[in-house]
Design a protein around this nucleic acid. Structure first.
Lengths: 165, 165
DNA sequence: GACAGATTGTTGAATTAATCTACTATATAT
DNA sequence: ATATATAGTAGATTAATTCAACAATCTGTC
């Protein structure tokens, strides 16, 4: 259960006279503080929905990859497969997604989003978009494109070195 | 206790043929995936050190703000004050920081990093720097500066709207 | 075709983290 | 002096994560 009001501790907003010291050197830190605030805002905006942690991204990945297996989903979302089981259980209970036994490999569960799931997902995407808007309006369209590109380039770095799973 | 090997599930590295769908539109998603991988890598690199979750950033903030109160620390790091108590307890037990009663307001505990704490912190910063290196080498110096600037601009957006605490 | 070994999904136990409430001591304002 | 607010602490509750064990099924090898 998430709380509804704006009562969370919250990352310190800027302008509080707190020194960051060497922490300020790291982009990881900058990424985290923004990302934390964004997910707090998103959580607040979806507080009524009883959204457990990996559910949104799991549903999104399922919708974008019809027939994906739970194992692949785990890898894509970055969750342990035992957590994925729980999430898919809940998605099914809420009728947002379904498991179908794969005919070619009967160990696998092929996952599909239902229509209701797709609708639900679109709502969440809209909330997410509104949440990000606050932050995105600080950037011009060109800057946003550039940011995207830089972030992607950074992410690809993880490709080079040995990546788990 | 964190595990030492590279055994974690891990965010899916790029290049796995998984479609992201609309998830791909959001910078929050891009921020998170990089940040997740970075903290995984950092956790792996410090697995021997028994680092509980907010400890590193708390110590960093204390070192950069000698005499800061626990409450201010909570706000700066984004943790509930009851968690901060635990963290400061551990910092003291490990002799990385000390509490001193404020003379002017005897409710407050003024926090200070010890020399050992500062040394420890520097080690962590170095590990952090090495962790980020992998990702940072994808960017030119100019791009890195720009990225920093864009991220800061984004973070400041949270200033405008009402920020919790 | 049978066996060994790997993989998928599942369960439950154990650990850890986050949240919330209530309480004590001290401070500030009236 | 009294009321109200704040800093720090403790404990209970809940959620999230990790880990190990297991059954079913597949794959390759003989």
């Amino acid at each position: 259960m998430t709380q509804s009001g704006r009562k969370q501790p919250g990352h310190q907003g800027p302008e509080t006279g707190i020194q960051l010291g060497r922490l300020d050197e790291f982009i990881g830190f900058r990424l985290r503080r923004i990302q934390n605030q964004l997910s707090r805002d998103f959580a607040a905006a979806t507080a009524d929905r009883n959204l457990r942690s990996g559910l949104f991204s799991s549903l999104a990945i399922i919708a974008a990859n019809p027939g994906i297996s739970q194992n692949e989903l785990s890898g894509a979302v970055g969750l342990d497969k035992s957590i994925t089981v729980q999430i898919v259980d809940e998605l099914e209970k809420r009728q947002l997604a379904v498991r179908k036994r794969s005919q070619t490999d009967r160990r696998r569960h092929a996952l599909f989003a239902t229509d209701a799931g797709q609708t639900y997902l679109d709502e969440l995407f809209d909330i997410m978009a509104r949440t990000e808007d606050i932050v995105l309006h600080q950037l011009s369209r060109a800057e946003l494109g550039l940011l995207r590109e830089l972030l992607d380039r950074m992410y690809q770095a993880f490709d080079q070195k040995g990546i788990p799973l």
